[in-house]
Computed example of a mutant assay.
Amino acid sequence: MEPKLRRITYVEDDPDIRAIAELALGSIGGYAVDLCASGHEALEKVPGFSPDLILLDVMMPGMDGTETLERLKGKPDTTDIPVVFLTAKAQKHEVEEYRNNGAIDVIIKPFDPIELPYKISCIWQNYLSERRATR
């Protein structure tokens, strides 16, 4: 049986975007959502929340999304959690770089809050299909 997407951690330094994403993912999408305001906070909270998926802002002060992903992939209890980057920097070469760094997909900001749960669901289904194909 394939794992269901139930728990999402969203890492975003902008409080307004965090609030919109929480509403979209929680109220509209029905997911359990854990919010983090920084990469450092994500490193602390992700192991205890055990999300099925992490949504990660690329541009954050202190530790950016790429470094946060690198650190999450370097820890045994978080290395296998799939990560989706959210960014306004989404030129083709940048998206390729994000994927080469370990992201399973990229969502371009600004995102439509009503469509966000559907996009996440599609990304999750593609991720599961790719996992099946590599087994």
Rank of each mutant, 00 (worst) to 15 (best):
P3W: 11
T9E: 02
Y10H: 14
V11R: 03
E12V: 05
D13I: 02
D14G: 08
R18G: 06
A19F: 03
A19T: 07
A21M: 01
A21C: 06
A21Y: 01
L23D: 12
L25F: 04
I28Q: 10
D34P: 00
D34T: 14
C36I: 05
C36Y: 03
A37F: 08
G39S: 08
A42N: 08
F49G: 07
F49H: 12
S50A: 12
D52Y: 08
L53C: 06
I54L: 00
I54Q: 01
D57H: 04
M60I: 08
M60S: 11
P61C: 13
G62P: 03
T66R: 14
T68I: 07
T68E: 09
L69R: 02
R71D: 07
K73G: 05
K73T: 15
D80F: 03
P82K: 04
F85A: 01
K89G: 00
K92N: 06
K92Y: 11
K92D: 11
K92S: 12
V95H: 00
V95P: 01
E97N: 14
Y98W: 10
V106T: 09
P110V: 00
F111T: 02
D112E: 10
I114S: 12
P117F: 01
Q125C: 07
N126C: 07
E130S: 09
R131S: 08
